[in-house]
Design a protein around this nucleic acid. Structure first.
Length: 426
RNA sequence: GUGGGUGUAGCUCAGUGGUAGAGCCCCGGAUUGUGGCUCCGGUGGUCGUGGGUUCGAUCCCCAUCAUCCACCCCA
């Protein structure tokens, strides 16, 4: 057995080649939240275990087998957050954010689930999410869906994602439906496969999602969730759909769409893609009107979604949607030859940064031949090499050597060189 | 937790029961202060790990670990 030090399974390093793309994505997300006037909330990565058990649902896979749970030194059971809605509710209640007021919040950060990693699924992964509290009507449901739709347009991937929509109804309607569904499945017990028999007690709604062709016919005749909606939920759903229609947002009604966490009610939705293999859900959300009360607060409606950033990043990469200018790199590379060249270069670099605050400048360190320094300048990706040789130092000049467009190099008075750089890179 | 694929140089991968290979990358030189193209040279490996078979194992066998994909579930 190897004793090599390495990252924990399913937890990935983000290397410098990838970080410009992530920064681009994060910039897009933050600016979008800002444009809708949602406000950021940051909560700890660790919470009391009970918070997640009580909100997500004791019998869900997430709570039963996917949480990173451990005892603190004082014996208290802690858990690395597997999602962030519960923690946001906890923080909002704790600080009075839900007292007679509405809130539009967003968060972004790492989540942890102990699962077998595969494409688009990792043990430490990142989500950005929205939480809107205190609003009952379908208008706020529509707003967050419109916001997400704008994001896909902003990123240039609107044609590659599909909105799937469903309503779970009130908790009572959902429970009643669940009962009739279990009764139906039990009357066809002999047709159920092993997985489905297990789910009969754990999550019968999930059986509808089975990919087993042998069960297709039986599933087609199963009671429909949408036919068991209570009147209020039906109206809510109809209004949401008509708003989306009016806004030109296409969607597919998916009566089998059942979100995995217990706290959802009424509206649920997912944005999915076929470009990522098996993990096609890029964004999932819905309404959770009972959650705040369930966690000990006054009844407060809530609605939100979460986007998996690794999946979104994978999609951007696959579709080649990260703009070239977002990829970073230096504008200029300053190199120097001659006595005390290293110090002269560092001092000149500081002076350039003083007068050219937007210039991205790398100063060569570590010596080496002139030739190797020029080569480094080229490989740095800089568009121009700034050459400070003995001649230049002696005469107060600087040589500018364009590396990309084939134009001639020029040796200028320092002030003229600064003017030129200002024009190029301001 | 289950199933399948893959572990050889920093990266992508060949390869053979008999002392370890290519391309790319990196470094140096051809070119005293001029990169990319070309040519020459060089650095770099406990062949994932442990055990077994064998005169001899990177290769065959067993175990184990890692990784990828899929199931399950989810973002």
């Amino acid at each position: 057995m190897s004793t090599k030090l390495q990252a924990i399974r399913g937890m990935n390093d983000l290397l410098p080649d990838q970080s410009p793309a992530w920064q681009y994505l994060e910039r897009q997300l933050r600016s979008l939240m800002d444009r809708y006037d949602y406000r950021e909330i940051r909560t700890p990565i660790v919470e009391q275990t009970a918070l997640f058990a009580r909100s997500i649902g004791e019998a869900t896979d997430v709570v039963e087998k996917e949480m990173y749970t451990f005892d603190d030194r004082n014996g208290e059971s802690l858990t690395l957050r597997p999602e962030n809605t519960a923690a946001v509710v906890r923080a909002a209640m704790e600080h009075g954010l839900l007292h007679n007021q509405t809130q539009r919040l967003w968060y972004m950060g790492p989540m942890f689930r102990y699962e077998r990693p595969q494409k688009g699924r990792y043990r430490q992964f990142h989500q950005i999410g929205i939480e809107a509290y205190g609003m009952t009507g379908p208008d706020i449901d529509a707003e967050i869906i419109l916001l997400s739709a704008r994001l896909w347009r902003q990123l240039g991937m609107a044609e590659h994602v599909t909105l799937e929509l469903n309503s779970l109804g009130s908790p009572e309607a959902r429970a009643a439906y669940r009962e009739s569904l279990v009764a139906y499945f039990e009357s066809h017990h002999e047709l159920l496969d092993e997985d489905s028999r297990r789910r009969l007690t754990t999550n019968p709604l999930r059986i509808l999602d089975s990919k087993n062709p042998a069960m297709a016919e039986m599933l087609a005749d199963a009671p429909q969730l949408l036919e068991h909606l209570d009147e209020e939920s039906r109206t809510h759903f109809e209004q949401l759909k008509s708003t989306l229609d009016a806004a030109g947002i296409g969607y597919r009604i998916n009566p089998r769409l059942v979100r995995g966490l217990d706290y959802y009610s009424r509206t649920v939705f997912e944005w999915t893609t076929t470009a990522l293999g098996s993990q096609g859900t890029v964004c999932g959300g819905g309404r959770y009107d009972g959650l705040v009360e369930q966690l000990g607060g006054k009844p407060t409606p809530g609605v939100g979604f979460a986007i998996g950033l690794e999946r979104l990043m994978l999609l951007l990469d696959t579709l080649d949607l990260v703009p070239e200018e977002a990829k970073g790199g230096a504008d200029a590379y300053l190199l120097a030859m001659g006595d005390s060249a290293e110090r002269e270069a560092l001092l000149l670099g500081e002076r350039l940064r003083d007068v050219l605050p937007t210039l991205r400048l790398q100063v060569h360190c570590g010596g080496g031949s002139f030739k190797s320094q020029i080569r480094r300048a080229d490989r740095s990706g800089a568009t121009v090499a700034l050459i400070l040789g003995e001649d230049e130092i002696a005469n107060g000049r600087l040589t500018l050597k364009p590396l990309r467009d084939g134009s001639e190099q020029r040796t200028l008075e320092l002030d003229d060189a600064i003017t030129w750089l200002d024009q190029q890179f301001a």
